[in-house]
């Protein structure tokens, strides 16, 4: 079965980003496919590269990028949510004349249409916020 996972929640301020991550891991463990993980609204903070987390805390951004990288997943960050929250890749940084990328390179930036495309191409769309 093909899943799309939508993440509305930022890391640390709510449990839901962690829930989404554990769900994504379980989807893969169950032998299912993930078409796309779409990070929307405050969920885009999960792609932030410029974070420091104390040693006894889980670094959710790192966990996401490891999961996406290891399994070659599509982790898309909503462009309109991202740029006004300071989450930019190198290309967006250049376009908007900012001094550098703040996004882990495992993620991609894309439009909201990619969420709709994902739900049309998946058997299940599951949202976390």
């Amino acid at each position: 079965m093909i899943f799309t996972i939508v993440v509305h929640a930022p890391p640390y301020s709510s449990e839901a980003a962690g829930t989404a991550l554990r769900f994504a891991e379980a989807v893969l463990r169950g032998g299912h496919e993930i078409y796309r993980i779409f990070f929307f609204a405050d969920g885009v903070h999960n792609a932030n590269r410029l974070t420091v987390v104390s040693r006894d805390e889980v670094n959710l951004q790192d966990r996401w990028r490891e999961l996406i990288g290891k399994h070659g997943l599509d982790g898309t960050v909503c462009v309109s949510s991202a740029i006004n929250r300071g989450i930019v890749d190198a290309e967006q940084a250049e376009r908007h004349e900012l001094d550098g990328s703040s996004m882990h390179p495992e993620f991609e930036i894309g439009g909201l249409g990619l969420l709709i495309d994902a739900s049309l191409n998946s058997d299940r769309t599951v949202s976390f916020g």
């Binding site: 079965m1 379980a26 463990r29 169950g30 299940r124």
Partner: peptide, 9 residues
């Protein structure tokens, strides 16, 4: 969590 995924399916 595995049961959660199974419920979604």
């Amino acid at each position: 969590y595995d049961g959660f995924v199974a419920l979604c399916a």
